[in-house]
Design a protein around this nucleic acid. Structure first.
Lengths: 342, 342
DNA sequence: CGTTGGACTGCATACGTATGAAAGGCGAAG
DNA sequence: CTTCGCCTTTCATACGTATGCAGTCCAACG
């Protein structure tokens, strides 16, 4: 199929030098005389030569590829992650090999996919919105492939994690709602297996209890738009309904708001306050203008990168567990504070 | 570091067979006796052996990787593309190497990035929302690497393209608005360098002119949310404003709607009708419930896949130019038709 | 029992690059 | 002029797998 591959040998022949000279010219650069370098450059340009990264990896043991496992891009938090992470890695000369793990968080599936990633000899793996079995974690560790869990916590000490302060965020949201004078608090949960879901809920409950309140209603939305709609319907069609609801992430919060406004005719925040978590771009759009807790994607990506690079380059080996601060973003789905805010 | 790599040689030694036997077991499978196969399987499991895809690529000339260049994931059409395409390719044993080309559609940047992709010996390239120089197209062609332009048209005969009927879609939207009795038509353009922008606008104008109408106002939003907001402000703050506006894609349409409703206090569709293009998920959300022209991502991905696989496996070589039908999705941002619809 | 064919198997080499070791060249110091 | 040392270059080999070729083994057939 056409495609005459041009190799370092071809360049060497044309330039009248040895193959190793060409190799050195491209890898270390300085270990070759100016004159020879010039000839090599000329020849390479003439032939359209570029080093074969794969062949190079075979010998260096570095593929300059990072595997990224992501469960679903439906939640607009993750496209941002993919974009920023890819870009940041590109700048470092790395590239992202993407794997989609279909049913969110099925460990078995993630394991299989991770195996496939390992087959590509990636230098590191980022699991976004997914967790893996300890067995596989051990395996990666044995292969010397560092793993970073992005936005998920897991106890395995071999795994690095980068999360924001989900517990604290949940708590701050509770404090906000309490300070606004709310009485009946609803919570719409994400997928129960996710650490983000558990931590946010725990923080929220803790925040409520700190001021003598407690959860009034709870439904599960599994991080999905349609399930969150159904959850909202259930929660708000009883005789008594919450006057404030924390939805475990923004993506589901939009679904809940849509049901409240357009199906049940409730006004936000007059009849009910809604708060989310993440601060994805649509949360800022006037149609929603959602009060939420911001997870800074850039910060999270930066820490992920740092963790990866430390493990890849440095002596590394010791996993890091980074927990980043986020902050409250008050918009229009909660009432203005009666008194000066906390 | 660590990471004792286990190779086919190790497996061969443990299983008491030759390295070639192990290789054959994993590649063709059947060219090895049942007994030997069993021993190899045992040994491989014991050692945790998996074939090195990179080493394999080196000799077969197939990396089973597809390069995907995407400019921005901010428009929620593209995350869907990434997800579906990755998944579909995964099912075929291929994997996606992602590249983000920062400033949308700067050809020079795409060229550089594509070069980097080629260094990884990918079996094919998908350019989503981007175009490349003819020179580079020629180069890829020479290397035998097929290219598919996704959602962009370009004249170069070496390039395959998969698009939906942008021209027809623009025309149908015009016909819809005309049939609803509108008189003053606005158009908010995307990035002028994009074929989708040009084709949609051309189709829209043609549809208007067919019934003796013409464009009343035009602004540019460059496919960005904030620029579309600004465009909407300019368009709707004059003495006379359009009574219908076609926004070149849904992503910008949301921005326009937000400005119309929440800044200018206009009612949709009573004061002004809004139509978009793409049918991304939020278009379906009640907050927007946008009338739009649907591009079916699944169909487009399927055709992309087919085009790639044909070129990779088959004799291939002849580029395909696929134009898929889309269809109108009428929701709540346009009035109900006075009479039976077209 | 000898022969033939088929099914396996192993040997050797190739893929394109990186890199340690050895050889070559050249100028400076003695 | 010799010697030493440094800079450059080449040689040879390795990375992990695939594959043509030749050899081995066994069963079946004449």
């Amino acid at each position: 199929m056409a495609g005459e591959r041009v190799t370092s040998n071809d360049v060497a022949r044309l330039a009248g030098v040895s193959q190793s000279a060409v190799s050195r010219y491209y890898s270390t650069g300085n270990l070759v005389s100016t004159k020879a370098g010039e000839k090599i450059k000329q020849a390479a340009e003439q032939l359209g030569y570029r080093p074969n990264v794969l062949a190079r990896s075979l010998i260096t043991g570095r593929s300059r590829m990072i595997g990224l496992v992501v469960a679903y891009l439906e939640n607009y938090f993750y496209p941002e992650v993919v974009e920023r992470l890819s870009k940041a890695l590109q700048d470092q000369g790395y590239h992202v090999l993407v794997f989609i793990s279909s049913p969110a968080s099925v460990v078995e599936n993630v394991d299989q996919i991770t195996q496939e990633i390992l087959d590509y000899q990636v230098d590191g793996i980022v699991l976004a919105s997914a967790t893996m079995s300890s067995e596989l974690a051990a395996r990666c560790h044995a292969h010397g492939v560092p793993i970073v869990l992005f936005n998920r916590l897991q106890d395995d000490p071999r795994l690095s994690t980068v999360t924001s302060d989900n517990h604290g965020g949940g708590r701050k949201l509770a404090e906000l709602l309490v300070s606004l004078g709310h009485e009946r608090f609803g919570y719409i949960a994400g997928y129960e297996g996710a650490s983000t879901q558990r931590d946010r809920e725990a923080g929220f409950r803790e925040g409520l209890e700190a001021s003598g309140h407690r959860l009034f209603a709870r439904e599960v939305g599994n991080f999905r738009y349609d399930e969150a709609q159904a959850a909202a319907r259930r929660m708000f069609t009883g005789p008594e309904r919450p006057d404030a609801v924390f939805v475990c992430n923004d993506h589901m919060a939009f679904a809940v708001m849509d049901v409240l406004r357009y199906e049940l005719g409730l006004r936000i925040p007059d009849d009910v306050s809604v708060v989310g978590f993440d601060d994805v771009p649509p949360a800022r759009w006037p149609a929603y203008s959602l009060t939420t807790f911001r997870q800074d994607v850039d910060d999270m990506v930066a820490e992920t990168l740092r963790t990866l690079m430390e493990s890849v380059n440095g002596a590394g080996g010791v996993p890091r567990r980074v927990v980043l601060d986020g902050f409250l973003v008050q918009r229009a789905t909660t009432r203005r504070a009666p008194t000066s805010a906390t």
